[in-house]
Design a protein around this nucleic acid. Structure first.
Length: 457
DNA sequence: ACGGGTTCAACG
DNA sequence: TCGTTGAAC
């Protein structure tokens, strides 16, 4: 939003979605606003109380719901820059992992930092964990010395190369998108993610091998990705583990018998700074979803209201699926509906509405039809398939507080050429000729430019 | 009434 | 392997 309205640069700013109820919900808070105590959990009015000068920018609304496409697209712009230098995994709307091993090895072989006569300023501003500031030298001189150490471990030399590359990439991101970003540079995803949050905004942090133990020993368990929830809490209360270092006391088998083989092994490893997760090399999302909540008095009470909102949600989803097909030649195969509901009779049975899925048929109207069928299937189960009856479009039994429709099992269409028929045979398990023909006919209708000549023959 | 997404592991 | 749930971010 600050890029779109440069006059907001440097001002305390937050993005709110909706504003009728208590000024809307904050979904993003600028660092200036954070400095005034504004938190993402606040409502717009609350933010105004703690920071009267705050600029509140509203999320676009389309079809009666918040439309986050602006921010998805902004994330894509950044990915487009970062993915040039190495394997890139889009981890969320604004986070990516990069595996820069190859680029770092290349730099180490061809132009290692130790040979550099000038190191650019962004690189020198890096934070190197555990780097002592002896002798009151300029911190940048210390960074330069660390980067150019000839006696360093090979892996730390790679890290030094990574530091230079990431600084370049962040400068390119800034130049080409006007977005700043922070980064962590480490030997695995877990440590890099941890480091990326240590110096914000717009800075980068390096985790040399020698600093891993010191970093994890006193790190509160909840700071580790995946341990911010119930697992972290049970680790604390069941085993008395409050820091990652405390985990070192427990043998692998003990952790495994308490938390299962996978989680136990994982815990044992992260305590030692070990994480074998590969950077996935995935630039696109694995699913698309469109949802809306209907809190308190706004809860939906009629089939007609549910159908109306499902239609809106399906329109948005269909539009995003269409973009994915046009831009990426990908097709989704599963449609899933999730609803949140409560029975107005017993106010306790809040969230047990089952999610339902079915094969995804392209076309807005078909998705709308299927979505409503899925809803009704779930509703019947929710009501226990008996008692409550809808009378004349009204009902006393249920209230819907949230609806989400999503598309998953997204696969790329073989772009090459020849074997589109082979592709469809592979995709349609049904032995029915009719089902396969429908499938093919659908693809022809959807993507006439690319496929008609092949498929119509 | 902490919204709207998204990914992943576990389970049957 | 699939659909579904719940955790986590």
């Amino acid at each position: 939003e600050q890029r779109k309205q440069p006059n907001l640069r440097g001002l305390p700013t937050a993005v709110v979605q909706y504003n009728e109820w208590k000024g809307g919900a904050l979904i993003a808070v600028s660092y200036e606003a954070r400095g005034h105590g504004v938190k993402r959990s606040m409502r717009g009015h609350e933010a105004k109380q703690v920071c009267p000068e705050i600029q509140l920018v509203q999320v676009p609304v389309a079809r009666g719901k918040a439309d986050l496409n602006t921010y998805r697209n902004a994330g894509s712009e950044v990915v487009a820059v970062l993915s040039r230098k190495g394997r890139c995994e889009r981890a969320s709307i604004d986070e990516v992992y990069l595996d820069l091993t190859d680029a770092a090895e290349k730099m180490l072989a061809e132009a290692p930092p130790e040979n550099l006569e000038v190191v650019d300023d962004e690189t020198l501003k890096s934070h190197i964990l555990g780097l002592s500031n002896e002798g009151g030298l300029n911190p940048k001189e210390n960074v330069r010395d660390w980067l150019c150490r000839k006696d360093a471990d090979h892996r730390d030399k790679l890290l030094a190369c990574g530091t230079v590359i990431v600084a370049e990439l962040r400068m390119q991101v800034l130049k080409e998108t006007e977005f700043t970003c922070s980064a962590g540079i480490a030997h695995n995803k877990m440590l890099a993610k941890l480091a990326s949050g240590m110096n914000k905004p717009a800075q980068q942090t390096v985790v040399p091998l020698s600093s891993v133990k010191g970093l994890l020993d006193s790190l509160p368990i909840k700071k580790m990705k995946q341990l911010g929830g119930k697992l972290g809490t049970s680790l604390q209360s069941d085993l008395g583990v409050s820091t990652v270092g405390d985990l070192l006391r427990f043998p692998e088998e003990k952790l495994q018998e308490r938390y299962g083989i996978n989680t136990g092994t994982w815990l044992w490893n992260i305590a030692r700074g070990i994480s074998g997760e590969e950077v996935q090399g995935r630039l696109l999302p694995k699913s698309h979803g469109s949802g809306k909540t209907f809190p308190g008095p706004r809860a939906l009470k009629t089939n007609a209201a549910v159908q109306h909102w499902l239609n809106e949600l399906c329109e948005e989803l269909a539009e995003r699926l269409r973009s994915d097909l046009d831009q990426n030649k990908r097709i989704a195969h599963t449609l899933t509906l999730h609803a949140s509901a409560y029975k107005s009779s017993d106010a306790d049975s809040q969230k047990n509405f089952p999610s339902k899925s079915c094969p995804l048929r392209y076309g807005t109207a078909k998705m709308q039809e299927d979505a409503f069928i899925l809803f009704q299937a779930g509703l019947r189960e929710f009501l226990g398939s008996h008692n409550i009856k809808a009378q004349g479009g009204q009902n006393n039994g249920w209230r819907i507080t949230g609806l989400t429709i999503s598309a998953s099992k997204i696969v790329e269409i073989p772009s090459g050429t020849s074997s589109i028929m082979k592709y469809f045979h592979g995709q349609c398990p049904s032995s029915s000729k009719q089902a396969r023909d429908d499938c093919v006919q659908e693809a022809v209708r959807l993507s006439p430019s690319g496929f008609s000549s092949q498929t119509s023959s």
